[in-house]
Design a protein around this nucleic acid. Structure first.
Length: 233
DNA sequence: TTGTGTTTTACGACCTC
DNA sequence: GAGGTCGTAAAACACAA
């Protein structure tokens, strides 16, 4: 509110025409200060303010009512902005996860092809003396396939702190809001209890783009399953 | 100058404690 | 019943065309 823009004409009784404009702002300032300290108006304070400002108690009460309404509107706008930025951040993470999942699937397919080729070669060759060595190769490939499949499965069925599927992006962000009585910005105090990325949103993975080397970003949330990444080149 | 959007006060209706 | 929210009318201001 622009202090000094207007104040009341205490001599006029009702409705339109009871405002004086271009005032010096002190009455408004006093009301604002009072609102800062407490946005509800108890009878004693109402009387005191009315007396100080030369207003009707009813006018002070109405001013507080309207001031609370304005505060609430601004608060809704802030909440909307916060939720939107949080959603945008989650959405970006979700897209990255989908891409990563596709990549893992293609790795599985590739390794399976490799395994099939090996098996076909062994059947055709029928060798005996290289048994141990062949077995070692197959085991190695199978282990790789299992690892990748396991990660694909994990990535598509678990989230860091909930049993949500990826149809709803994971969120480990516990956010509490407390009402504030700060005047000009009417500051809202948000308590972000968990890790956040530089955009202020929660951090599920340390990079937006998954590295092609080992990356193990585990989110431990009590009994919740861990989501770890073991990406090897 | 004028039309339009914004801001503020004030009120009535309704709700809650 | 007092005091709250919600929706809205009225008035003045701000500003672009």
């Amino acid at each position: 509110m622009e202090a000094g823009r207007l104040f009341f004409d205490p001599t006029s009784g009702c409705h339109a025409g009871n405002m004086l404009f271009l005032g010096n702002g002190d009455p408004v300032h006093l009301l604002e200060k009072s609102f800062e300290s407490e946005n509800k108006l108890e009878p004693d304070r109402k009387s005191q303010l009315a007396k100080k400002l030369g207003l009707q108690p009813r006018q002070v009460a109405v001013w507080f009512q309207n001031r609370r309404a304005r505060w609430k509107t601004k608060q809704l706008e802030r909440d909307y902005d916060l939720l939107k930025s949080s959603y945008d951040s989650l959405s970006a993470n979700y897209d990255s996860i989908l891409k990563h999942n596709d990549n893992l699937k293609s790795q599985v397919a590739s390794l399976m092809e490799k395994l099939k080729g090996k098996e076909a070669a062994e059947i055709a060759g029928g060798g005996v003396g290289v048994e141990n060595n062949k077995l070692g190769d197959e085991e190695e490939i199978m282990m790789s396939v299992m690892k990748v499949e396991d990660r694909v499965s994990t990535a598509t069925t678990t989230t860091p702190n909930s049993d949500l599927q990826y149809s709803t992006p994971p969120c480990n962000n516990t956010m509490s809001m407390s009402l504030a009585t700060d005047e000009e910005d009417e500051a809202t105090h948000y308590d972000h209890n968990h890790d956040h990325d530089q955009h202020g949103g929660p951090t599920y993975f340390s990079d937006d783009v998954f590295p092609d080397h080992q990356h193990n970003n585990q989110v431990d949330d009590g009994d919740q399953p861990l989501l770890g990444w073991w990406v090897w080149s």
